[in-house]
Nucleic acid binder design. Structure first.
Lengths: 168, 168
DNA sequence: TGTCTTATTGAGACATAGACTCAACACAAA
DNA sequence: TTTGTGTTGAGTCTATGTCTCAATAAGACA
């Protein structure tokens, strides 16, 4: 987090759900029960997750009338990305989501051994990006930077097989 | 291309097929007709392509006994990536391939309008990457950096709909 | 050059993530 | 409360890629 407010920070007083409601209203969309359940769940913890995990968790959480269907999960994820609440990453061909709203810019180190993501921030990166873009008269809207490799932990435990299908 | 030879350049005298044969032999694999046809075709032009396009082109090219089947295309692409002849990119969730062997390091600007990829090279990028990694004691094996935005051409022709399903 | 072992191939089934269709439903405005 | 319309969930469909397995063809060796 930064020490001073930027324009972006002003709205951070709003909860994710409130922020989402703003977005929905601006689009003439409705604030429904499934969308509420999903947003509450997604923002209840700060972790990277994929659609499938979310579908599982939601169906476990509320088996009855309060469950959220697969299509709705996919639809809502797309909306949340559009609304700027979530960011979508492509890790090794898989779609992975993370919080965007109220969370500082960052990129990722991806350990190809344990599949964990590590966040980092670099000011210079954006500068390079913008410089290159300017040179080619390219209008930048964003970027994806993922560094592949092996994390400290995995370097140490060398080739002892561990968490494989664990969380990304 | 650089002005001076590096160790990497030494083997560039070999054609992609020759290079691939080296790899196959080192793995106890066989130099077969389908693999030859595929490599020849892939390296006959320097473009980004996806598996599907390749399958189409190959089936058009040689309908008879010389055709290459879908499974073989997928298998060979994997081998070519392993052999270091091709690089695999994930653009907006799609797998896209490009020449790696004998081709200088670079990253990409991706125009979300016309879906075209533009290449660029930045020395600083690798430096930043390595600095960040060092800080976190992360052993780097590679990276993916894709800058999203709108290319000059698309900025100019504004919102006139054009090439959509065109080549990536 | 013929023989034999074994990697490779192609056909087709299977897997998976995600999108689409549509009738029933529920939000929110009047 | 009523009503118009956006939303939902069940189920189907599509795209991309993988797996299985019998038939084939490299290529090593005689």
């Amino acid at each position: 987090m930064s020490d001073q407010f930027t324009l972006e920070d002003v709205n951070v007083a709003l909860s994710p759900m409130e922020r989402f409601e703003e977005y929905l209203q601006s689009k003439g969309k409705r604030v429904t029960q499934p969308r509420r359940i999903l947003v509450d769940h997604v923002f209840s913890k700060h972790e990277h997750f994929d659609a499938d995990t979310l579908i599982d968790e939601l169906s476990k959480m509320a088996a009855g009338p309060n469950r959220v269907s697969r299509p709705t999960v996919y639809r809502s994820l797309t909306e949340l990305v559009e609304a700027g609440l979530l960011r979508k990453l492509d890790i090794a061909g898989r779609a992975v989501y993370e919080h965007d709203y109220g969370y500082p810019d960052h990129d990722h180190l991806y350990c190809t051994q344990c599949q964990q993501l590590f966040e980092f921030h670099s000011e210079e990166l954006a500068k390079i990006r913008d410089a290159v873009a300017k040179e080619q008269h390219f209008r930048v809207t964003g970027h994806k930077f993922i560094v592949n490799g092996v994390c400290v932990e995995c370097q140490h435990k060398a080739r002892r097989p561990k968490r494989k299908v664990d969380l990304i």
